[in-house]
Amino acid sequence: MWDWFHRLGSPKYFYGFAGALVPWLAGLCVILFAVGLYLGLVIAPSDYQQGDSYRIIFVHVPSAWMSMFVYVLMAIFAAIGLIWRVKLTAILATASAPIGASFTFLALATGSIWGKPMWGTWWVWDARLTSELILFFLYLGFIALQTAIPDRQTAWRAASILLLVGVVNIPIIHYSVDWWYTLHQPATITKFDTPSIHLSMLIPLLIMAVAFKVFYITVLLSRARAEILDRERKTHWVQDLVRSEQI
């Protein structure tokens, strides 16, 4: 098992392994999305308060979950990279950042679209939306730092420290924003805070959550493959690969 992990850490092996996995994952992802969206948008009943507009939660909630999940995962990659110097971690975290940022953006956009009919305005300084916005800034900071430092190794080492600092701060930021929100807006309905969600809504939500996760893995692996080719373009195995592809 350990041996397998070790081999997986080598970019060449990972490239092949990911290449074999991607088509299957992509297929699974399409099926999950189809089922989840069908159940969520067609089968699930309307909400008695919000009507049909609540259905955006099937996109909003999974993307909000993923935005957090991807950041923490990147921080784990960073820690592994700093401690064990595994090359692959840099590739995986770098490839994850734009995906995570997109999830965050999607969560913000869907939250804002949902807010229009509910609150009558595109943006409300709701605690969760605010936290999500700050998370978005953290993603942008990571990407900006990595692109600003020309040397890849240095960039990754700096960016991993930023990730670790960020992940330590996220709970504090989250708590402070919650506290700030309750201070300024006591006793309003918190958004999406359905006390007991009906099973016919919960099931599509969970399916969508899994679909988002599979989608993330699929895109991550494809992006990581491209990143590997770019980084290892001088090695023999990549050049052999390119030669054989051309024929």
Binding site: F137, A144, A148, I149, I161, N169, W179
Partner: peptide
């Protein structure tokens, strides 16, 4: 983090300001 980046001042703010939010609050 940005010490080696030329004109890293703006980048510095981008990285650090989100982390300062709890203090501000």
């Amino acid at each position: 983090l940005v010490v080696s980046v030329k004109r890293g001042g703006v980048l510095l703010s981008l990285l650090v300001l989100p982390l300062c939010i709890p203090v501000l609050i």
